Computed example of a mutant assay.
Amino acid sequence: MTGRKRWSTEEILDAAAESLRTGDAESFSMRKLAGTLGTDSSSLYRHFRSKTELLRAVADRILLSAMDGYRPEGDWKERVTAVALRVREAFGRHPQLAAVWGRYASGGTGSRLVMEELLQALSASGLPDEEIPARYHRLVVLVAALVASEAAIGTVPPPEREQGLELFRVAVFGADPEHFPALTRFARDVLPLGADRGAAFEEILAAQLADIEATIAR
């Protein structure tokens, strides 16, 4: 009698990534993944102690891919920006996994590579050592929030996206000028949440870096 195939850690991660690509972290389970692989959950637990550990490993692979081929270039701001854009692009190819990264902290090689480069860039900025950990934390929280927000919009089906845009138009152009004078004034120029996300990402990041620069100057 032929036994069940023994799946490698990498094969399990591949299958989990594909499952998350078409689903989400909430509906994902070890039992469902085992069914997809044609095995039982106990075989997966030999590789990962829990669902959370598996999800962390999947998210870390995205970070690892983001840093693949990276070489530090330019000043500290250019280095931080390059890493942030690489992470954004990597999760943009796997939007369902962006929320996983924001929810489940990763401690793998990909995470360490991102942390190391950001900390080194901040060290090169001239910030005092005692301020670097806090600034690093703010940067990572900002990038994770922007990436997750953009990815969430990217996973909305076209019909729902169009419905949301119509509701936005009603909210903006249907506002009573007496009660919403500012909204009425800027109605034609206010953009919906999902518009121009790339430029917004870079501008918000640049503002954070400018704040760090101003701190150094002071």
Rank of each mutant, 00 (worst) to 15 (best):
S106W: 02
S123Y: 08
D129V: 12
R112D: 12
M115P: 09
T109W: 02
G110Q: 00
T109A: 14
R112G: 06
T109I: 13
G110P: 01
E130A: 11
T109M: 11
S111E: 15
Q120W: 03
S123A: 12
L119R: 15
T109E: 15
S123K: 14
R135A: 04
R112H: 11
A121F: 01
Y104H: 04
A105N: 09
S106F: 07
A124K: 13
R112N: 10
T109K: 15
E116D: 14
E116V: 03
E116P: 00
A134I: 06
V114P: 07
G110Y: 03
L119K: 14
S111F: 07
Y104T: 00
E117A: 03
G110M: 06
E116M: 07
A121V: 06
G107M: 05
G110T: 04
G108A: 06
L122V: 00
A105Y: 06
A134R: 15
E130G: 08
R135H: 08
P128N: 07
S106T: 07
A105M: 03
S111G: 14
A124E: 15
R112W: 05
P128S: 06
R112M: 13
L122R: 02
G126M: 02
M115L: 12
A105P: 11
V114W: 06
I132M: 01
I132A: 09
E117Q: 10
A134G: 03
D129K: 13
L127R: 09
E130N: 13
E116K: 12
E130W: 12
P128I: 00
L122S: 06
L122C: 04
A134F: 02
E130I: 07
E116Q: 13
L122K: 04
S123T: 15
L113S: 08
L113A: 04
R135N: 10
T109F: 01
L127T: 10
S123V: 01
A121N: 12
A105F: 02
L127F: 10
E117V: 11
Y136E: 13
G108Y: 00
L119M: 13
A121H: 09
L118M: 11
Q120D: 14
S123H: 14
Y104S: 06
D129G: 11
L127S: 06
A105W: 08
P133M: 04
A134V: 05
L127N: 08
S125H: 04
I132L: 05
A121M: 03
R135K: 11
E131C: 04
L113D: 03
P133S: 09
Y136L: 14
Q120T: 14
L127K: 00
L118A: 09
A124H: 11
L119F: 07
S106D: 00
A121W: 01
Q120L: 13
S123C: 05
A121T: 06
E117M: 04
S106Q: 08
P128T: 02
E117G: 08
Y104R: 01
S106P: 00
V114F: 02
G107I: 02
S111K: 07
G107Y: 05
L113Q: 12
G110W: 02
